Structure formats: C-alpha cells, structure tokens
Amino acid sequence: MTNDPTAHAGPGTLPDPARLRRHVEFLATGPRSRLRAPAAMERAETYVRDELSGAGWLVRRRPFDARWQLGSTDRHGHRALALKPRLHRRLRGANLIASLPGSGAGPVVVVGAHLDSVSGSPGADDNASGVAVVLETARLLAMAPVPPRVVLAVLDMEELGLIGARQAARELDRDAGVRGMICLESVGYFSDAPGTQRLPVGFEKLFPEASAATRADGHRGDFTLVVHRRSSSAAAETWRRAAAAAPTALPGLLLRDPRPDGPLGLLIGLAVPPANHLGRSDHAPFWNRGIPALMLTDTANFRNPHYHRSTDVPETLDYDRLASVAAATAVTAVSWPDAGPGPPVR
C-alpha cells in the first residue's frame, strides 16, 4: 500500500501553489506577535484555526503561562537567534494543536511551524511559509483513506526563544507520546543564482561534505536543507526522495547533526557554536526530550536577504517549490520510519 496521502484522492489533490500563496498573503500583511502585535496575532490564529477546522481537523487551543524563561528578543534584524539572549519573567501565549477524528490512540508524528514573526517584519518566509505548508499538509492528510496518527502544531513565541515549542513538546510527549517531529522553518525562499547560498562561520570544518556539495552547486540556494540526527536519518531520506519525486522536483540536502538527542546534545552545542545553528527552531525542544526530529529550512539568513526585515513579503517566495515541500512533508508524516542507520552524513 502506498504511503502517499494523495494516492487515493481525486483531481485537485496535489499540493496547490495558489492555495499556499493565499495563505502566505493573508498571514504576512504585517508583523505577528503576542507581545508587539497582538491584534495581528489573533487575526492570524483565527485564520489558521478556521482553515484547519474547515479541512476536517479537531483544533485545540492550548494556552500557556511560562515564567522565567531563558530565550531571545524578537527585535528585527539580520542576526541569528543565538546572538540575542534574553531572560523573560513571564510569557502568556497559546499553541494550536490539531488532530483528525478517528486517528486512534498511540504515539504521533508532529508537523509544526511557528506563527509569530519578529517586530518590523511581515514574516512571509519566516514563518508564514512554514504555516502555509502545515495548512496544505492538513488538506492532503485529511484525504487519506485511514486518518493517520499525525498532530499538527502551530506554535507561538518561537522568536522569543522556542517558548511555545517547549510547552508543546512536553505536553504532547506526556499526552500520547511522540514518534517524530517535522519542523518547517523558513521554507519558501529559493534562488538559482550562483553565490546566493552562504555558510555559517566554521561550517566547512564541521560539515565538510555538505559544504563541498554546496560549493559544487555554485552556492546556489535551490535546495531545502533537511537537518536531522541519527535517530531521524531514515525520515530525512524519506523526505528527500519524496521531494525529488514531487511535480516540481526539489533537491533536499541532508545534514546530520552529530550530537545525540537529549540534554547532552544541548550541552555539546554550547561548546561547539556552529552546531547551534542546527537547533535554531521548534524541533530543538523535541530533540532535547530525546524525540527524533527534522528541521526543513531554506537556511533563512544564510540565503534570504529579507530575513527579519520589512522586505520579507509574499512576492519574494517560490510557491511551486513550496508545494513540493508540502508534498514531501505529507508523505513523510504518514510514513515516518523507525530509527535506523539511514544515509551517510551529507
């Protein structure tokens, strides 16, 4: 039996670039933030909830009240998360968690993306693109003949230091158990021009094979980076193959984080700064709890000149390739493989 959720559906069931664009255009009219732009955040949350419910998903709003959280500032700028630390006394937010009726009990695969943006940026790529893929994945999975044990998570306060994802990882792991997690982080910006893909400082020494592959391609930003660990190597390969087979073939560059899952991996990252870039989104709290996870990304500030700026607008994204991201994500979510040796580091 095929694991493609569109295989049993009728016409129009492939990922729809026009639908993805509509989602991004609605969400990215301006900054979205529980603290700095609460009305826009509420508008975006209502839209997401209505879209998920309309696709047949049961949506729960899970508020949280987090105190004394070490995180980051959400001020706009072209700097990386790790360079903007801040201690938050109290943060009140909410995640949206959705499941399909009849999906049954047992551990789930989580597909997640953060809804908030930094101040001063409409956040089309970061991260309306990721939320749009979650919504399109919802539509595709709802057509599966048997409802898959997949949970969709639209997460709050990523830009403040993965606050919503920390709450979601703990709650979902406690409630049903989590087999794996797919994080969509800035997945819509691509460029075929040479020299558009940059690498973090120290990256070539730490990841020589991935660096060599990027160099051989002329440093073009024409791929999705699939960040994984040993525990999610097989899932990363599943995603890569599905993206290559999508209507618009999309290369996936696999990059294995050598750190182990769990608290030890977090501590090692403090000693090896280049590795911290691999944990800069909502998959990291799942890794820290020992849960296999992937991060899908266009590499954000290492490719996109509009990252965290007012120019991160819907017109800059590639919706055909974004549809391929959605197709591969849906396939991987319903066929999450058991941990295994997987592919080599790339």
Score class of each variant (00 low, 15 high):
H306I: 01
T73N: 14
A82T: 15
R215Q: 00
P208V: 00
P263K: 04
P101E: 00
A234V: 15
Q69R: 13
A80G: 14
C183T: 07
G342R: 00
V24H: 01
P273D: 07
A44D: 04
L155K: 10
G54S: 07
G269I: 06
R280G: 13
A94F: 09
D192T: 10
L96M: 06
R256T: 02
A98H: 03
T329C: 04
L96R: 01
D192G: 06
P273F: 02
P101V: 07
H306S: 02
S310G: 14
V187G: 04
L317Q: 11
D257R: 05
L266Y: 12
G30R: 08
V313G: 08
V272I: 14
T46W: 12
R92M: 08
T46D: 12
V201K: 08
A284F: 13
F203C: 00
R149D: 03
L225V: 11
A284E: 08
A18D: 12
R303L: 14
H78K: 15
A44Q: 05
A66N: 11
R36W: 11
L184A: 12
A82W: 15
P101S: 07
G202P: 06
R75T: 10
F64N: 05
L81Q: 14
V334H: 09
W287Y: 15
L152R: 02
L225Q: 02
A132I: 03
F26H: 13
R241P: 10
L52F: 06
E159N: 05
T332R: 02
R241N: 14
E315L: 13
P17L: 03
P38R: 03
D175F: 15
T137D: 05
A244P: 08
V59A: 04
V313M: 10
T329F: 05
P85Q: 07
R67T: 12
L115A: 06
P63C: 03
D156W: 00
R229L: 07
P292Y: 09
V24R: 01
D125C: 05
R22H: 08
R86E: 07
E315I: 12
A168R: 05
V151S: 07
A144C: 11
A66V: 11
R36L: 12
S119C: 10
I268F: 06
L140H: 07
A113G: 02
L294A: 05
A271S: 15
D338C: 12
G164Y: 02
E171C: 15
P38C: 12
D257P: 09
L58C: 14
R170F: 12
L264Q: 10
Y307R: 00
W68R: 11
L250P: 01
F302Q: 02
F207E: 00
D257Y: 08
V48T: 02
V201D: 09
V108W: 03
P247V: 07
G30Y: 01
R170D: 13
P305Q: 08
L135N: 04
I163M: 10
A235F: 08
P305A: 03
K84T: 15
V108M: 11
R229Y: 04
V325A: 00
S191A: 13
T332E: 06
G164D: 09
R79E: 13
S103N: 09
T299Q: 05
E315H: 14
Q69I: 15
